[in-house]
Design a protein around this nucleic acid. Structure first.
Length: 558
RNA sequence: UGGGGCGUCGCCAAGUGGUAAGGCAGCGGGUUUUGAUCCCGCCAUUCGGAGGUUCGAAUCCUUCCGCCCCAGCCA
């Protein structure tokens, strides 16, 4: 088989890779990157892009990648998210260097450095209210003006900051600000907040702190402490880079990391912002963060996506600074490509129609040995029982066929996959006229070979033995939204574009008996239908529930 | 309208002065007991527009246009 997405080894030359390669060529001893999520939600496919980038750059250049939780805001963060994030990173197949780190590990050092800046006359305690601060900051087109507290003495600032630290001041009373330039064209430089008062219990540090550093004050210094060489983040932090560098240049930090930005991932027919995903969960549009329709890693995992397919996808989309919208079809290609090569085949009839083979002995059961993979005999085989009564899919039968229909037609023949050729002779209806059964005959000369008289049978359909099959539930998923860009229309909420048919539950589907051993880890191809796996939450032995990961590519009817 | 970015095929994306890679999608054909897979072929005389420099430009210069991000004591 030719090499495809999941096992190709050639690396595209994106700009981050080039920057690092140049640094290494120039003598950089060890590359160190980091993946720094805030533990305030679950990871999604957009985070996978960042994870793959950070970990693979470290790996490729013989360096290390840290996992650091950016936990500077105790109000939004939870332990549950920390555990979920660790699980997702590991699931993707990456190993972070050493222990998990937390920005909160550095709160003592960060505090000392804040005192240092105060002593240098480069930070001050400001008593402007949040609203006043906004007014003093100016606008995009007008410069800001200095806070009346900007020129407090070092001693006064020191005393006030100490009071803040001790928790003697209520939330919102004041903040610590860096003294930079209120007229800077870059708003991030207009005396940004470094510390705010929060009388909250922190998931890592408990009640030790009453003041918490902001992202801007904590991030670069945390990178410096960890010896990060390349601090890779998304484009919206581009404007923060001068501030990131300002802190590093004005503090006695142990190293000088450099920040580089790339475009975050946008995917068609979904949303990729934590806020909106949280809303889908909180307002019960989905069953949870791991709902198989969610673009979260836990949702994709439950849906049946493999880590390899997600890594291949991230490799295919590239890394650039131009913000784009990737077609979700590419993600679907990635999982089909992986699963086609690795998934064992099975037969499952989604919409059963009973077929009686009238010339087949009622007391006989035959077993056919079928390969688990048509191109990979080494994967082994499974046994398919065959008897007088079987099920086929209603979609595979027509009394009067449309043009190009090559399945079972009344009066004509079709091949039963891995079994005999049958001919449909009679349709049985119920009192309402609904077709409830087909009476067919089989050709005993067609087991494992074509009809000896040379007649051609064009179609092949799947089937299961009615006496031996399993009754299972199958869940079909479709795109969560009906439009490519649900966030594009600023006059409407993305919720208005939710696809009402994103989940279709099929009960009493008929699966071949070998599927009795299905577990969520085994992804199957249900031949002629798609890729499926047992649901990790709702499937139980004897009561199987399958999720459709993705359908097979289908050129019929296009 | 201040600052920072980005514009190469329907989508993603190489290319950084020498005459437009690749993937996805699409289209045609072949193989096939999955209308799957696989295989073969087609798919940008043109790089947001207009000028200019040059023997030569997607790549350099000028100018215009479009899109994205920033005014949290969020990250």
């Amino acid at each position: 088989m030719k090499p495809t997405a999941t096992d190709k080894t050639d690396k595209p030359a994106h700009f981050i890779r080039k920057i690092i390669a140049d640094d290494v060529a120039a003598g950089l001893a060890e590359v160190r990157t980091r993946f720094p999520p805030e533990p305030n939600g679950y990871l999604h496919i957009g985070h996978a892009k960042s994870i793959c980038l950070n970990f693979s750059m470290a790996e490729e250049f013989g360096g290390k990648c840290n996992l650091r939780f950016d936990d500077t805001n105790p109000e939004k963060e939870e332990d549950e998210f920390i555990e979920a994030i660790k699980r997702d990173v590991e699931w993707l197949g990456f190993k972070w260097d050493g222990e998990v780190r937390f920005a909160s590990d550095y709160f003592d050092q960060l505090y000392e450095w804040a005192v240092y800046l105060i002593k240098q006359g480069k930070a001050y305690v400001c008593h402007l209210s949040a609203e006043e601060t906004r007014e003093y900051r100016g606008t995009l087109t007008e410069p800001g003006k200095d806070s009346p507290y900007r020129n407090r003495s070092v001693d006064e600032n020191l005393a006030l900051f100490e009071q803040m630290r001790r928790g003697e001041l209520p939330e919102g009373t004041c903040v610590l600000r860096a003294k930079i330039d209120m007229a800077a064209p870059n708003i991030n430089l207009r005396d940004p907040t470094m510390y705010r008062i929060r009388h909250a219990t922190h998931h890592q540090t408990g009640d030790k702190w009453k003041i918490y550093p902001t992202y801007d004050y904590a991030h670069g210094q945390s990178d410096a402490i960890e010896g990060i060489t390349h601090s890779i983040c998304t484009l919206e932090f581009e404007d923060h880079r001068p501030l990131y560098e300002w802190f590093l240049n004005n503090l006695p930090v142990p190293s000088k990391p450099r920040q580089y930005e790339f475009a975050r991932l946008n995917l068609t027919y979904t949303v990729l912002s934590k806020r909106k995903l949280k809303q889908l969960v909180d307002e019960k549009y989905v069953t949870g963060w791991d709902d198989p329709r969610m673009p979260t890693l836990s949702g994709l995992r439950r849906r049946g996506y493999t880590p390899a397919s997600i890594r291949a996808f991230c490799e295919m989309i590239g890394v650039t600074r131009s913000p784009g919208m990737v077609d979700i079809g590419l993600l679907e290609f990635a999982i089909r490509d992986d699963l086609d090569k690795h998934a064992p085949r099975a037969m499952c009839v989604l919409s059963p129609l009973k077929v009686t083979i009238t010339n087949y002995d009622e007391n006989v059961v035959e077993y056919f040995t079928a390969p688990l993979h048509p191109q990979k005999p080494e994967m082994g085989t499974r046994e398919l029982p065959f008897c007088r009564e079987i099920y086929i899919d209603r979609k595979d039968f027509r009394e009067v066929p449309e043009k190009d229909f090559k399945r079972l037609v009344l009066g004509q023949e079709v091949r039963l996959r891995n079994a005999y050729v049958i001919r449909a002779n009679e349709v049985v209806r119920d009192e309402k006229g609904e077709i409830v059964e087909l009476k067919c005959t089989y050709d005993p000369e067609t087991r494992g070979k074509n009809p000896p008289d040379g007649r051609k049978v064009k179609g092949v359909i799947h089937w299961v033995s009615a006496r031996h099959c399993l009754d299972v539930e199958v869940r079909l998923y479709d795109r969560l939204f009906t439009v490519e860009a649900p966030e594009e229309d600023k006059t409407k909420s993305f919720l208005e574009f939710i696809n009402p048919n994103s989940l279709v539950v099929l009960e009493h589907c008929k699966a071949e008996p070998s599927l009795a051993n299905a577990t969520p880890e085994i992804r199957y191809q249900f031949e002629r239908e798609g890729y499926f796996c047992a649901d990790s939450k709702d499937s139980k032995p004897g009561q199987l529930v399958f999720n459709r990961t993705v359908s097979l590519r289908d050129s019929y009817g296009k």
